[in-house]
Amino acid sequence: MSTTELAWFKSSYSGSQGDSCVEVAVTEQAICVRDSKDVARPHFAVGLAGWTSFVRYAAHG
């Protein structure tokens, strides 16, 4: 799936200044992550189980 076909979004906690944000896009197989300041660079993908573990850790970390 190409980057242009994905529906990218930022967290509602991201500031409007554009500082240090990431964007994510959800697919059936993975969560894709990219730098919102440089969207031409490649994104990386994390499996759903890995993403769930990361979010759980971040929420309680």
Rank of each mutant, 00 (worst) to 15 (best):
A7W: 01
A49P: 15
A49R: 15
L48Y: 05
V46I: 13
R41H: 04
G18V: 02
V22T: 11
K10I: 13
G50V: 07
E28T: 09
D19T: 11
A30V: 05
D19W: 00
G47Q: 12
Y57W: 14
P42A: 15
A25K: 02
D35H: 06
V24Q: 01
L48R: 15
R56W: 11
R41K: 10
F44K: 06
S11P: 08
F54W: 10
V39D: 04
F9R: 15
S12N: 14
V24H: 02
L6D: 01
A30G: 03
F9S: 14
G61Q: 07
C21T: 10
Y13H: 14
W8V: 06
T4P: 14
F9T: 12
A25L: 07
P42Y: 07
R56M: 12
C21P: 14
H43R: 03
W51Q: 03
L48N: 11
E5D: 13
H60F: 09
E23G: 04
G61D: 06
W51S: 00
F9K: 15
I31W: 00
V26A: 13
S2D: 13
F9P: 05
R34K: 07
H43T: 00
D38W: 05
W8Y: 09
S53Y: 02
D38K: 12
T4Q: 15
A49L: 14
R34I: 04
T4L: 14
F54Q: 06
V55H: 03
A30E: 06
D19N: 13
S53N: 13
E23P: 02
A7K: 09
A25W: 01
D35S: 09
P42R: 09
T27R: 04
S2E: 13
G47S: 09
D38Q: 08
V33N: 00
S11K: 09
V46E: 03
P42I: 14
S36E: 06
A59W: 05
Y13Q: 07
T3A: 13
F44Q: 06
V22E: 03
G18D: 11
L48F: 04
T52H: 12
T4W: 08
V55I: 12
T4I: 14
Q17Y: 10
A49D: 15
E5R: 15
A40W: 13
D19A: 09
E5V: 11
S14M: 08
S36W: 02
E28A: 11
Y13P: 01
H43A: 01
E5C: 08
